[in-house]
Simulated scan of single mutants.
Amino acid sequence: MKKLKERWEIVKNWQLIFPLLGIVGLGYSAFRLSSLFLKEQHIALNIALTAGIFFLLLKFVLFIFKKLESKWDIKYRWELISIFLVFAITGSSSVFIGKPIIKFIGITKDNLPAFAYWILYILIGFIFYQILLVAIGWLFGQYHFFWNFEKKMLKRLGFKKFVE
């Protein structure tokens, strides 16, 4: 436990939740990917494939962490896990919230051409993604990181007036 705390620069015990959530999320992703590859349910083969995918994903994520640790302005390594969790939750949540909004407005695939429907769907999802990114980032204690990230993104999209 001491090595884990030192490696991820954890100074308070509550911060251990982030590596734990990261490992659980990585394990779930590995399991879902192995289920995609295996059509039939072979428990031993599924466990072996899940373990292999988990190992590969772990190596990939740690490689990404090394690259982003120097690029992003963060104080502690455990914050990287927190940031990635916020991105994952926000992506799923924006789709989850966008569907009922589109139905509430009355937009369906039946009353619009498919191209227009998907453009509106993506646009509404993108708007909610921006809002949720800062809100969920705040819940995870990463408000400043995500507010700066948001300002940078809005400037690149040409909305300089709104973030100055």
Rank of each mutant, 00 (worst) to 15 (best):
L139M: 15
F31Q: 12
R156A: 15
F54E: 04
L120Y: 10
E9N: 06
V11E: 07
F115L: 15
I119M: 06
I64P: 00
S35M: 10
L85T: 15
N13W: 04
W118A: 05
G125K: 06
L38T: 10
S70T: 14
S29E: 01
F55S: 13
N111M: 01
F159T: 07
I10H: 00
V24T: 10
L45T: 12
G158D: 05
N46E: 13
I107N: 00
D110Y: 06
Q41I: 13
L112P: 01
I43C: 00
L38K: 06
T108K: 00
I47L: 13
G158S: 07
I131T: 11
M153R: 13
L120E: 05
G25Y: 03
Q130N: 10
L58F: 13
L112Q: 06
N111I: 04
F140S: 06
V95S: 00
D110L: 04
S70L: 08
Y143F: 15
A48N: 11
A135Q: 11
F63Y: 14
L85Q: 07
L157K: 08
F65G: 07
A116C: 02
I119R: 05
P19K: 02
F149Q: 09
W138R: 15
S94D: 08
V24P: 00
N111C: 01
E164Q: 13
R156Y: 13
K152C: 05
V95M: 02
K66G: 03
L38N: 09
N148Q: 14
F87C: 03
F65S: 07
F63D: 04
G25D: 02
W78L: 01
A51T: 13
V134Y: 00
R156Q: 12
A114M: 06
I102L: 07
G158I: 07
I101D: 04
F162C: 03
I119C: 02
Q142L: 03
F54H: 07
